[in-house]
Design a protein around this nucleic acid. Structure first.
Lengths: 220, 220
DNA sequence: ATAATATCAGTAAAATTATATCGATAAATA
DNA sequence: TATTTATCGATATAATTTTACTGATATTAT
């Protein structure tokens, strides 16, 4: 019976923070770190940090904590950052270009090898060292290069058909930057990266603090 | 006694999806919609959708559902998208420029009125119709223009000092795109918008599905 | 006018996630 | 060497979030 311990999403979201903090500590020459210390730096509960670390399989030592080096490696391994995945990006607009230009994804095991667009003026050009290819050839290229990750940065109305093409090409995971829901078979992982979501949280919380600070009362 | 019903974060994150879907329906001429229908489109549980809508205060009618127009307005009101907030963006690099170039934030009640940078070559220029000003004048401008939202797109090592300047200038909410934790007084809302978080979820889930599909067993 | 049906609203239950507690253990100190 | 202390790991509790259930109600069809 297969038994992969699936990691809770809230945990996964915290892990990159740990990697970042630990990397800074490592550069400072720190050799070991306790969950207490991590928790204080990141304003979390220390038990929560220990639980999260548990997911990586690393065990610590009383009084000392965890070895920074080993912990970083285990976290990166758990997040699969040590295995580089090639990916295609579809939609070479301003958002697409920004993503192509961001160097940090390499560090997370993501290598964008080509972009696709249906604009003839863009096809054949190179953006941030990444070639822009013809959208109509997307499926074919996916299959030929065994691409497993597709990044969707096309306008909302064409997001679904883009996803369909990727899936026909054999893609297993889609990072969707369009605001639209896309329907996929269950074996395809879809992660929504929507800044509006994050902005919504920011603006709502700002309002909530404003309202509570001023002690305004809402009806009912 | 002040009593603002604070909305759970998972709910807030789903609300923009509803707005997007409903706006499409509205353009199609649909007048009313049921939670069941929303749930099916967005692959959620219908009770969850109803609970989320409850947060806006809108009530539906049996058999019919909710009026699309009213629901959109209520959602936008709840998210405070109808009140436009002016904001500053600090760090006019590639990520900053991409954010400045994205038109969709206007729709969410965010208006970026100026960018700041410490690079003399950039100061005085205009990026995507937004003027780039001198970073050393940040605090002063914040105070003078009564800016409440700051967007941090500076490199990690200077994120904290940028936040400090914003807070001294009276900012109440910070949208932090740097991967670093920033310390703030409790009255300041901080929202982390980190693509690496989202990517981490994508890559981890991809791995989990790969492992379970192949029925590989992990020790313990 | 009556019956059938889809849906809402409220309550209850389940699942997930976070926090608290406690004994065990390695390091530091007396 | 004995004692103190910080921290781990495990278990238990609490809080949050999601899902399930039930009765009421508006619309549609007969």
């Amino acid at each position: 019976m297969a038994s992969i311990k699936i990691t809770p999403e809230p945990t996964i979201r915290r892990l990159p923070k740990y990697v970042h903090l630990l990397t800074i500590l490592k550069h400072k020459g720190v050799k070991s770190v306790s969950s207490t210390m991590i928790a204080e730096s990141l304003e979390l509960d220390s038990t929560l940090v220990r639980k999260d670390i548990e997911a990586t399989g690393i065990v610590g030592r009383p009084k000392t904590g965890f070895l920074v080096d080993k912990l970083i490696m285990a976290l990166r391994e758990h997040l699969n950052w040590n295995n580089e995945d090639d990916a295609f990006l579809i939609g070479a607009g301003s958002l697409g270009a920004a993503i192509l230009g961001y160097k940090g994804f390499r560090e997370c095991g993501l290598n964008i090898v080509a972009a696709f667009d249906n604009n003839p003026a863009k096809i054949g050009t190179v953006i941030k060292n990444v070639p822009v290819l013809d959208y109509t050839k997307l499926e074919e290229h996916c299959r030929r290069m065994h691409i497993h990750i597709g990044i969707i940065t096309v306008p909302a109305p064409v997001a679904q058909q883009t996803a369909d093409a990727l899936i026909r090409g054999g893609v297993r995971a889609i990072w969707n930057f369009s605001p639209t829901q896309i329907a996929t078979p269950q074996w395809v992982v879809v992660e929504y990266a929507q800044l509006t979501m994050s902005l919504a949280v920011l603006k709502r919380k700002l309002r909530e603090t404003e309202l509570t600070d001023n002690s305004i009362q809402e009806t009912k």
